[in-house]
């Protein structure tokens, strides 16, 4: 059984990493990163089957793709704290000559990253390709992917969603971070997307909703259920209902912190709400 308290402590530490990383360079995307901290911690510690070390081909292990690459702070923090690269390297986020580019890339050889992302809407197709590759290799491990909800406004997603159902890509669990916010405002105000559950189902996917996307037990339970839905001829979509900016009160429930760094004072408030657990980088 997973130790929920340990995962919670790790999540708190990841939130501190996110705040400190974006504060240091006065740029980056804390809102979506904070909202997905629990998900990433669960994914890398409990949900995915991973081998030690990093190999691009990911044979005989589960593979994750981040499509909404702007939430790189949470990705980098969790990768580092899962042993993919030294935690100290978080100090180099967005700096010149760093492997931790503003948006994730394979170009600088950062272990753990298998595709560049940032220009939105491309990750679903890539995940499907990796899923097809696994099927050809008779590798029964799964492909996981994460997408922003606003990102679904990009048309390529719907090409991919149609393909995945039409071709029985049932070794893929695509999670949508349903926080209802994007840069210019709420998703409903910018471009209403209607009922995403109905849309995915209409395209032939199995859809599972996680109502408490910032609750570790709910995530673990939901993703365990999602795994049982794989291998049945249909791709699986998880609608993960999160709060953008979760864990830092003044950043929550607003799009304002999508892509803005806290100042010195705001950093102190945010850190005070997330007391150091396993140690700052």
């Amino acid at each position: 059984m997973p130790n929920i308290e340990e995962l919670q402590d790790l999540t708190t530490q990841v939130r501190r990493d996110i705040l400190r990383m974006v504060h240091k360079v006065n740029s980056g995307h804390p809102g979506g990163s904070l909202g997905c901290a629990e998900f990433f911690v669960c994914l890398y510690n409990e949900i995915m089957e991973s081998k030690n070390g990093f190999n691009m081909d990911g044979i005989d292990e589960d593979i994750f793709f981040l499509s909404n690459g702007h939430i790189s702070p949470v990705y980098y923090s969790v990768l580092a704290r899962s042993g993919y690269f030294p935690v100290d390297e978080l100090n180099t986020f967005r700096l010149i000559d760093s492997r931790l580019q503003g948006h994730p890339t394979t170009h600088e050889g950062l272990p753990g990253v298998r595709i560049a992302s940032g220009s939105l809407g491309q990750g679903m197709s890539v995940a499907i390709g990796a899923a097809e590759s696994k099927k050809l290799n008779k590798d029964n491990h799964l492909i996981y992917s994460l997408h922003g909800d606003g990102e679904l406004q990009e048309g390529q997603n719907w090409e991919a969603i149609m393909y995945a159902a039409g071709n029985n890509i049932d070794n893929l669990i695509a999670t949508v971070d349903l926080n209802g916010q994007q840069i210019d405002g709420s998703t409903d105000n910018v471009l209403p997307m209607g009922n995403l559950k109905s849309k995915f189902e209409a395209f032939g996917w199995t859809v599972l909703e996680i109502e408490e996307g910032n609750d570790i037990s709910s995530i673990l339970q939901g993703m365990a259920k999602a795994k049982t839905l794989t291998g049945q001829g249909k791709p699986v979509c998880v609608l993960l209902k999160t709060v953008m900016g979760n864990g830092v009160d003044f950043m929550m429930h607003t799009h304002a912190w999508h892509g803005k760094a806290p100042n010195d004072e705001q950093l102190e408030i945010g850190l005070a709400q997330n007391i150091e657990t396993i140690g700052d980088y």
Binding site: D57, S125, G129, L136
Partner: peptide, 25 residues
């Protein structure tokens, strides 16, 4: 088994191709 008809969806085709390299294709 090694041919993939993606339909009239070239953007998706390029992404799938990129993903398929992961695993050695």
């Amino acid at each position: 088994e090694r041919f993939f008809q993606v339909g009239i969806a070239e953007a998706n085709m390029m992404g799938i191709a990129a993903g398929m390299t992961i695993g050695g294709k």
